[in-house]
Amino acid sequence: HTCEKCSTSIANQAVRIQEGRYRHPGCYTCADCGLNLKMRGHFWVGDELYCEKHAR
C-alpha cells in the first residue's frame, strides 16, 4: 500500500481509512491540528480527515 498523505510505501502497519485508501499510523492525523486519530476515529470534511473538534 501507499500512504495517501506522504505518498511513500507502507511497509508494516497500515491504517485503512476507506476502501483502497491507506495511511501510516503516524500519518493518520487531523488535517487541522495534527492530532493522531488512532483510537479516536475520524470525520470527513470534503476529502480531508479531521478530529471531532475540528470537523464541526
Results as ranks from 00 to 15, higher is better:
Gln18Tyr: 11
Trp44Ser: 12
Asp32Trp: 07
Ile17Leu: 09
Ala14Pro: 13
Arg21Glu: 06
Ser7His: 07
Gln13Met: 07
Ile17Asp: 07
Lys38Glu: 15
Ala11Met: 03
Val15His: 09
Glu48Leu: 10
Gly26Tyr: 14
His42Tyr: 04
Gly20Tyr: 08
Arg56Pro: 15
Lys53Val: 12
Trp44Cys: 12
Arg16Pro: 15
Ala14Asn: 11
Ala55Phe: 14
Pro25Tyr: 04
Gly46Met: 06
Asp47Pro: 10
Thr29Cys: 07
Glu48Gly: 13
Glu4Thr: 11
Arg16His: 11
Met39Pro: 15
Glu4Lys: 04
Lys38Leu: 01
Pro25Ser: 13
Tyr50Gln: 06
Glu52Ala: 08
His54Gly: 05
Cys51Ile: 03
Gly41His: 01
Ala31Asn: 13
Gly34Tyr: 05
Arg40Leu: 14
Lys53Thr: 12
Pro25Cys: 02
Trp44Met: 11
His42Pro: 10
Ala31His: 06
Ala11Val: 00
Leu37Val: 09
Ser9Gly: 10
Gly34Val: 03
Thr29Gln: 11
Val45Ala: 12
Ile10Tyr: 01
Ser7Val: 08
Tyr50Thr: 06
Tyr50Asn: 06
Glu52Val: 02
Asn36Asp: 06
Tyr28Asp: 01
Ser7Thr: 12
Val45Ser: 09
Tyr22Gln: 11
Arg21Met: 12
His24Leu: 00
Cys3Ser: 01
Ala14Phe: 14
Leu49Pro: 08
Gly26His: 15
Gln18Leu: 10
Asp32His: 12
Gly26Met: 12
Val15Glu: 15
Lys38Cys: 06
Asn36Glu: 13
Val45Met: 10
Cys51Ser: 02
Lys5Ile: 15
Ser9Met: 02
Tyr28Leu: 06
Cys27Gln: 06
Phe43Asp: 13
Leu37Ser: 02
His24Tyr: 05
Glu19Tyr: 02
Val45Gly: 13
Lys53Gln: 12
His42Ala: 08
Arg16Ala: 14
Leu49His: 05
Tyr28Gly: 03
Gly46Asp: 07
Arg40Lys: 14
Asp32Ser: 07
Cys30Ile: 00
Lys38Met: 10
His1Met: 15
Ala11Trp: 01
Cys27Leu: 02
Glu19Ile: 01
Cys30Leu: 00
Gly26Phe: 14
Leu37Gly: 06
Phe43Val: 04
Arg16Met: 14
Glu48Val: 11
Ala55Tyr: 13
His42Met: 08
Arg56Glu: 15
Arg40His: 15
Gly46His: 06
Leu37His: 01
Asn36Ala: 09
Ser9Arg: 05
Cys3Gly: 00
Tyr22Arg: 05
Lys53Arg: 09
Gly41Thr: 10
Lys5Trp: 02
Arg40Trp: 09
Gln18Ala: 12
Cys33Arg: 00
Phe43Ser: 10
Trp44Asn: 06
Asn12Gln: 11
Arg16Glu: 12
Cys27Val: 02
Leu49Trp: 04
Leu35Lys: 10
Asp32Lys: 08
Gly20Trp: 03
Leu37Ala: 02
Thr2Lys: 11
Met39His: 09
Ser9Glu: 15
Cys30Asp: 00
Glu4Trp: 06
Ile17Phe: 09
Val45Arg: 13
Asn12Lys: 05
Cys27Trp: 02
Tyr22Gly: 04
Tyr22Cys: 05
Pro25Leu: 13
Cys6Met: 02
Thr8Arg: 15
His24Val: 02
Asn12Asp: 15
His54Arg: 02
Arg23Tyr: 05
Leu49Ile: 13
Thr29Lys: 08
Tyr22Thr: 03
Glu48Pro: 01
Glu19Gly: 04
Asp47Cys: 11
Gly20Pro: 02
Ala31Leu: 14
His24Thr: 05
Val15Met: 06
Glu19His: 05
Thr29Tyr: 08
Asp47Ser: 11
Met39Gly: 15
Ser9Asn: 10
Gly26Ala: 12
Cys33Val: 00
Cys30Met: 01
Asn12Met: 09
Ile17Asn: 08
Cys6Asn: 03
Lys5His: 06
Lys53Ala: 07
Glu52Gly: 10
Asn36His: 06
Gly46Ser: 10
Glu19Gln: 10
Lys5Val: 13
Arg21Tyr: 11
Ile10Pro: 05
Leu49Tyr: 06
Phe43Leu: 10
Gly34Asn: 13
Arg16Thr: 14
Pro25His: 08
Leu37Cys: 05
Gly41Asp: 10
His24Ile: 00
Cys51Tyr: 00
Ala55Asn: 07
Glu52Tyr: 00
Lys5Gly: 11
Arg16Phe: 15
Gly26Glu: 15
Gly26Ser: 13
Asn12Tyr: 02
Arg23Met: 05
Leu49Ser: 05
Gly34Leu: 08
Tyr50Ala: 07
Leu35Ala: 13
Ala31Asp: 08
Gly20Asp: 05
Ser9Leu: 01
Ile10Gly: 05
Arg16Gln: 15
Phe43Glu: 10
Gln13Ala: 04
Val15Ile: 09
Met39Trp: 03
Ala11Ser: 14
